[in-house]
Design a protein around this nucleic acid. Structure first.
Lengths: 359, 359
DNA sequence: TGCTTTCTGCGAATCGATTCGACGACTCGG
DNA sequence: CCGAGTCGTCGAATCGATTCGCAGAAAGCA
C-alpha cells in the first residue's frame, strides 16, 4: 500500500513536470467535472441520457484540455479497432499507377467512414507484417490487392476468420468478397472493335512473364479473353509479355516489329509500357492509327497522355477502392452474410488511337 | 454473482459455437499449459527467467493454437503502439512519383523494424484523420511529408508532444527533426553546369503556381537557388510554374518558346512535366542537347526515361524514407535529445541532355 | 541441521475506456 | 399519501496483456 502511494506520488510529479496533456484520461475529465467516469463515457457516446447541465460541464472540461479517448483502451474493450488493413505489394517493386490508385481511393473511402488504414507491405509469402495484421487483432478487416489465381494469402485470411475483401479475384470466385475489372470482356471488346475496323492480325502486350508465371489474375484473364476473342473472329493473335516500364515497352515493340511485321493492331493492359510503345512507334516511323492501331485497358491519365489519345477502357480505380471499402464494412457488420462480388466492365472509350487497318 | 456466472456460461457457449481461434488470450494459453498468465508473459518476453521445460510446454501450446498477443491490450499496458503514422496528401490529388517513393520506403523501413504504418490522408487544414492520429494515442510517432515553409501541421504536432519527423523542412529548420534534399544547392549546381557550357539564358520550370502560393518548400527553395545562382553568374533567368502533368509541361514549353525564344537551357524540378517538355521539344523540331539543354532534379526513372537521358540529381527517395524512420525511432527513444537534421545533396549525374550552348 | 541465497512461478494491480446493475430522487396516477 | 415507473448517476466488472512484490522450493554454506 505504501509502495503504491509512492508510485502514485511519483506519477503525479511526473505529470507536473511534463506537458499537461500527458495526463488526460477519462478519469481526469470525470474528476474535473465532478462526475463519475461512466457519466463522462455516456455523455460522449450518448448511449444513456445525461442532463444538459452535466453534459455541458463535461464538454467544457474536454474542450479545455483537449481530451480524446485512448484508442487502444477503446479497442480493447469494444473488440474493434476502427482500422482497416491494406496489404500492398512489397516496396522493392514500384507500385503501378493502378495500384497507387487503389491505395489512394481505399484510404480516402476509409477516411470518409472515420476509419484508419494500416499498411502491410507483403508479397505472397508468409511475412511478419502480414501475420501481424491478420493475427494480432490490429484491424477489423483487410483489403487485399494483386490477387493471384491461387493465392495463399486468401487461404490464410479465410481460415483466420478475419473479414476481408480482395481487389481482383482468385480462380475460385465463390465464398469471398471481391471487386474486379472484367478483363476478358474488356479485352474482347477491344479485339472486336479492331476486327470491325478490318484488322486481321493482332498482338496482345501483356504484363510481365514473371507475373504470368506466378498466376497473376489480370495477366491470365487478359490472355484468356484475347485468345478466345481472336479465335472467335478468326484472326491471328500474337501474345507478348512485357515488364512494367518504358524501356521494356520499347524493346517489346521492336520484338513485335521484327518477328511479327504483319501485326496491324496492338491490345494492351500494360499502362507502364505505353510510353515505350510510343517511342518504338516513332522510331520506326509509324503513325498511329494510320499504320498501327492501339487499344487496351488503362488508367485514364495514361490513355490521355498517349499521342494520339488511346482508345481504352478506363479502369475506375476510385470506384473500385470505394466499393472494396463498402463491401468490407458490410462484411464486418454481417460476417455470416453471403459473399458479394462486383465485376466491373467500364465501356471502351473510343479515342484517336484506333482506325481502319492499313492495306 | 449469479448473473456473472450466467454471462460466462453464455460466453463459453459462444466460444464453442465459433472458430477455435476466437478464444485465444494469454489466460487460455496459461490454462492449457498449466501455468499462470504471468509465466506465459515472461516466457514470451524473456524479461524474467523461465525454466526450459516450462517454456517448451508454453511454446507448444502457442504453436498449436497459433496465439498472438492482442495488440490493443499490449498497447494499452505498455503505452506504445508499435505503429508509426504517415501523413500523406489527400487522395484527390494524385501522388507524385517522389511522394510515392517516400511512402514505399517509409513503409518498407518500418516493416524492417517490425513496425506498422498508419496512413492519414490529410491536407493542410485540421482534418479528422490527422487529429485522430495525433491525439488518439494511435501511433508512437509521425512522419509528415509535403512540408510548407509555414506549416500548421508541424505547429500542431510540436504542441502535442508526439515525436515526429518531417520529409522536407519549414522556414525555421531548428527544433524539429527532418530529412530533405538541398534544392538550392542542386539547382545551383545545374545552373553552374549549364553556365560552364556557355548558356547565357536559362529557364526554371518549377512546380505549380498553387504550390508556390501555399508556400511549398521545394518550389520556393528551387526558385531561390535558381535566382541566386543566375545572378551570381550574371545570366538571365526566366521562372515558370507548371502543373504536375504532361499536358501542363507541353503548354509550359510552348509558352517558353513564344515568350522567351532566347532561352537555350531549362532547369526543372518538375518530373511529371518531363514527358510534356519532351513532346513540346519534338513538336518544335528541337533536338536535345543540340538546340536546347535540360537539367534538373528528378527521380532516377524519370531521368532515365527521358530521351536523351536527363542530366539530373537523382532524388534518393529510398534513403530519405529510411532515414526518416531512423530519425523518428531515435526521437521516440529519446524525445528530449536535440533535434537532428539530414540535408542531402546527391551529385548531379551527367547524362546526355546537356551540351554546349548553340551559337 | 539450520540459515541464507538463488531460482521459479504465482497472485494481484494496472493501463483507459465501456457497460451493466443498482440506487436515490423525481413524477404521476390512484 | 403511497407504490409504480422514469430519469440521471454511480460503482464495479471487464477487455488482454505486463509487471511488481512475494512466496515456496532448491541449493549452498557453515
Amino acid at each position: 500500500m505504501v509502495i503504491r502511494r509512492l508510485r502514485q506520488a511519483a506519477r503525479r510529479m511526473c505529470a507536473v513536470a511534463t506537458v499537461e496533456s500527458v495526463l488526460m484520461n477519462i478519469g481526469e475529465i470525470a474528476r474535473r467535472a465532478g462526475v463519475s467516469r461512466s457519466t463522462v463515457s455516456y455523455a460522449l457516446s450518448g448511449k444513456r441520457p445525461v442532463t444538459g447541465e452535466t453534459r455541458r460541464r463535461i464538454q467544457a472540461v474536454i474542450d479545455e484540455i483537449g481530451y480524446r479517448p485512448n484508442a487502444a483502451a477503446r479497442a480493447l474493450k469494444e473488440g474493434r479497432t476502427r482500422t482497416l488493413g491494406l496489404v500492398i505489394p512489397p516496396a522493392n517493386q514500384r507500385l503501378t499507377d493502378m495500384q497507387l490508385g487503389f491505395v489512394a481511393s481505399v484510404v480516402e473511402a476509409a477516411a470518409r467512414a472515420d476509419l484508419d488504414v494500416l499498411l502491410s507491405p507483403s508479397g505472397g509469402d508468409h511475412d511478419r507484417s502480414f501475420e501481424r495484421v491478420v493475427t494480432g487483432r490490429r484491424v477489423d478487416g483487410v483489403i487485399l490487392m494483386e490477387i493471384r489465381l491461387e493465392d495463399e494469402r486468401v487461404v490464410r485470411l479465410r481460415e483466420s476468420g478475419l473479414p476481408f475483401v480482395t481487389i481482383g479475384h482468385t480462380a475460385n470466385p465463390y465464398g469471398t468478397c471481391w471487386v474486379d475489372v472484367d478483363y476478358p470482356t474488356l479485352i474482347a471488346r477491344c479485339v472486336h472493335h479492331l476486327a470491325d475496323l478490318g484488322h486481321r492480325s493482332l498482338a496482345l502486350v501483356n504484363r510481365s512473364a514473371e507475373l504470368l508465371a506466378i498466376g497473376y489474375g489480370p495477366a491470365h484473364r487478359a490472355l484468356a479473353g484475347f485468345t478466345e476473342a481472336v479465335a472467335q473472329r478468326g484472326l491471328t493473335g500474337v501474345e507478348l509479355t512485357c515488364a512494367d516500364d518504358a524501356a521494356a515497352g520499347e524493346s517489346c515493340f521492336e520484338q513485335l516489329r521484327d518477328q511479327h511485321p504483319d501485326v496491324t493492331a496492338v491490345v494492351t493492359i500494360n499502362e507502364a509500357a505505353l510510353p515505350g510503345l510510343q517511342r518504338g512507334l516513332e522510331r520506326a516511323g509509324l503513325v498511329v492509327p494510320r499504320d498501327m492501331s492501339l487499344a487496351g485497358v488503362a488508367a485514364r491519365h495514361w490513355a490521355e497522355d498517349f499521342r494520339p489519345q488511346l482508345t481504352a477502357a478506363d479502369i475506375p480505380t476510385v470506384e473500385m477502392g470505394a466499393s472494396a471499402v463498402d463491401l468490407l464494412l458490410e462484411r464486418i457488420a454481417a460476417p455470416e452474410a453471403p459473399a458479394r462480388h462486383l465485376l466491373l466492365a467500364p465501356p471502351v472509350s473510343l479515342r484517336a488511337s484506333t482506325g481502319p487497318a492499313p492495306r
